[in-house]
Amino acid sequence: MKGPRRLDAYPDRLLDCEEALEDELAALIGRACAAGWSRPETLAALISLCENTQLGDDADPILSALIGRGAGGNRS
């Protein structure tokens, strides 16, 4: 997997991360569908897992700040 272009914060860092994860995510979705899970339930499960991970990480102010700056970053 490709890493960030720089170690510090930069404007497109989140986009670069998304691009780095994209192929892995597509492969994971493909494997879940091949195992018999539907695409909608696979996506719903992934969203749920991400939300639950976020809830666990909320105590981390650095991670919360990064997520707040991300795509669609206004979490209510």
Rank of each mutant, 00 (worst) to 15 (best):
C33F: 09
L55D: 05
N74I: 09
L14H: 14
G70E: 01
L25V: 04
D8I: 08
K2V: 15
P11F: 09
A35P: 14
R69A: 13
A65R: 13
A71E: 02
R6K: 07
R75Q: 03
E24D: 06
G30E: 13
I62E: 14
A44L: 14
G72Q: 05
E41Y: 06
N74F: 11
D16R: 09
A20E: 08
D12E: 13
R5E: 07
T42E: 00
S48R: 09
D12V: 12
G68M: 12
A71D: 01
L66R: 07
A9I: 11
G73W: 10
N52L: 09
D16T: 09
L28M: 01
G72R: 06
A26V: 10
A71G: 06
W37V: 03
E22F: 13
L21F: 01
C17I: 11
G56Q: 06
A9D: 14
G56M: 04
E19W: 01
L66D: 13
I47Y: 00
R75F: 12
A9K: 13
I29A: 05
P61A: 13
N52P: 02
A9G: 12
G72K: 07
A71M: 07
L49Y: 12
L7M: 08
R39P: 08
R31I: 14
G68A: 15
I67T: 03
E19L: 15
L25N: 01
R6T: 02
K2S: 15
E22G: 07
P4H: 07
L43H: 05
E41V: 05
R75I: 01
I62V: 14
G36H: 14
S38H: 12
A45T: 05
M1S: 13
D8L: 07
A34S: 15
C33H: 12
P4G: 11
D8A: 10
W37T: 01
L15H: 08
D58L: 04
L7W: 11
L14M: 14
A71N: 01
P40I: 04
D16N: 09
G70S: 03
G72M: 05
N52W: 12
S64P: 02
A26W: 08
G3M: 09
R69Q: 10
A65W: 07
I67A: 06
S76I: 01
